[in-house]
Design a protein around this nucleic acid. Structure first.
Length: 218
DNA sequence: AACTCGGGGAA
DNA sequence: TTCCCAGAGTT
């Protein structure tokens, strides 16, 4: 691990101890609950997901109760959150896990990706949060942070580009990858946010190439 | 690589 | 009013 990576992790985790947000899916390592939360969090504000998530978990506390659910009742989730194509993933994922892995979540990336609706991000979230395994987890916020901090100057769907994934791989190769994910998401929502980032409040600015370039141009 | 999906809060 | 949110599937 190179030196700047370890400094970033240290500072982000330190920032997180004073600035963490509380969400119900952060109180658990249950991969089922992590998956449900992440299904709901697709392009959707976390605050908007909270009541829907709590209601859903109360109604379907585990894989088996969800597998027996009525599709029209599960659809109330996307009635509230939009992106209706997601609604089929809930029951399909539960049935897939029961039929293919005895109702248990696999603990490796390629196997997780076979679950309906589980893409690169959710697979990584489950690995890091539930199983404490290193895996690159790149959402739009983390991609933006990486793009800025190393001044990569990438455009378009930067989240899926190789350079971003390589750096994310280094970042998440640490003892607390799940905690780092939550910390990075909060940090990139509050400080290194889209539009104008709050560089004055950023604990990483002295190392950030975006900040250094910006301040040099003045 | 580019496009689409969507209700809803924030600017 | 516009913008865009803890992405994934498809073309």
């Amino acid at each position: 691990m190179n030196r700047s990576i370890s400094i970033i992790i240290k500072n982000i985790l330190k920032w997180y101890t004073h600035n963490s947000r509380n969400f119900p899916w952060r109180d658990t390592k249950d991969p089922y609950k992590i998956m449900i939360a992440e299904f709901m969090l697709h392009r959707t504000r976390a605050e908007q997901v909270v009541p829907v998530y709590l209601d859903f978990i109360k109604k379907y506390p585990d894989i088996y109760s969800l597998a027996d659910a009525k599709p029209e009742e599960v659809k109330t989730v996307t009635n509230h959150l939009g992106l209706h194509w997601r609604s089929k993933h809930f029951i399909e994922a539960a049935k897939y896990l029961i039929n293919n892995s005895g109702g248990k979540f696999p603990e490796e990336y390629n196997a997780l990706r076979q679950i309906p609706g589980v893409g690169e991000y959710i697979a990584g979230a489950i690995l890091t949060v539930s199983f404490n395994k290193p895996a690159a987890v790149v959402d739009s916020n983390i991609a933006r942070f990486i793009n800025r901090f190393w001044n990569l100057n990438l455009n378009g769907e930067i989240r899926r580009k190789r350079k971003i994934k390589e750096i994310a791989d280094d970042l998440f190769h640490n003892p607390e990858p799940g905690k780092l994910l939550f910390a990075l998401v909060d940090f990139t929502t509050a400080i290194c946010k889209p539009g104008q980032p709050l560089c004055n409040e950023c604990p990483l600015k002295v190392k950030c190439l975006y900040y250094l370039e910006k301040t040099n141009e003045k």
